[in-house]
Design a protein around this nucleic acid. Structure first.
Lengths: 77, 77
DNA sequence: ACAAAATGTAAAAAATATGTTATAATCGAG
DNA sequence: CTCGATTATAACATATTTTTTACATTTTGT
């Protein structure tokens, strides 16, 4: 997981989820993970596996880069 | 959580790496992981963290979706 | 063919993601 | 305000990624 990471990111999952009026549980079920995993992804922003990120992106028909806002460490939006 | 995944993927890292005449070790250093991590990603195809995938994609100036060939389980290319 | 560099394999340890469960906080509807 | 649904927090257990080390094999240059 690349210890001293050059990049960080913000999840936009909650935005897409809100747009579709979808609950955390529903998204979790669609993707096949627990609700807590979705929750922590939206909140604590930990680093998901690529497949998980991709699966969620697919639910909303967007790319991983659309779903997560990548930026370099130490820079703002 | 590689259990009942809906998606799988093939890495194209070795292709991009070959294009740039870059060694596994060089790429590993650029990204800040061990050579084995790169090696296993190219070979055994395990599921990297999203940040790692992104970091590698950035080295080659492509998107994650460019660097990895996603497909649904049970389907061919 | 030889040497050096690059790649592959393997196993165990370390780090981190994910699951599980339980409980609390929040928010909207009535 | 109260109820139910949704979301948040936390502790602990499990699964998976990533590192480390060491050695085998392949490739490349000369």
């Amino acid at each position: 997981m690349a210890g001293k990471d050059r990049y960080k990111f913000d999840s936009k999952i909650h935005v897409y989820r809100a747009t579709r009026r979808m609950t955390q549980q529903e998204l979790a079920d669609l993707v096949g993970v627990s609700r807590q995993t979705i929750m922590q992804l939206e909140r604590n922003r930990y680093n998901p596996s690529m497949l998980l990120a991709y699966s969620i992106a697919k639910v909303f028909d967007v790319t991983i880069e659309d779903l997560f806002d990548f930026k370099e460490e130490g820079k703002d939006a």
